[in-house]
Amino acid sequence: MEITLTVNGAAKTVDVADNALLVDVLRESLGLTGTHVGCDTSQCGACVVHMNGDAVKSCTVLAGQANGADVTTIEGIGNPDDLHPMQEAFRDNHALQCGFCTPGMIMSAIDLVQKGGGALDEAAVRDGLEGNLCRCTGYHNIVKAVLAAQSST
């Protein structure tokens, strides 16, 4: 089937199988490999993207459900010369090691801060990131980064 969606601001039309997932569309059809797959039970959060303004797990959205949607991936929020404040905060606070969970973590964190109204404390950040697993950082610096990004935006 054919679906049309906006990805990182550009309209895309892709021909996909009925059983394709949004993450397949992003990684395979569109070559946006910054969105990762780390589990098969919708737990790890490595695949988180924004869809119509909400953080979602792109491994648990069928391509058809994303038809007509506005999708933003890690590739769409900034680049090395013009980083999103959350990307910058992750770098400045050493909030990543192997980098595999990082795209999903950053996309979740952006959504969390946007919806947090500037009022997030450490506990709220930890609670808000429960859908993203990181095996490297112990979350310590991720939490720092998210709080730093909140203060800087």
């Binding site: 059983n19 098969d40 919708s42 491994c59 648990t60 959205v61 069928l62 058809g64």
Partner: peptide, 26 residues
């Protein structure tokens, strides 16, 4: 029927269900 898909899609991914048709209520 598919509503949010939070249970159904993981079930499909693991081939624990094999419906002929998925009808999205979204």
């Amino acid at each position: 029927y598919l509503s949010g898909g939070m249970t159904l899609i993981p079930t499909l991914k693991q081939r624990l269900a094999s419906p002929s048709d998925v009808i999205d209520l979204g």
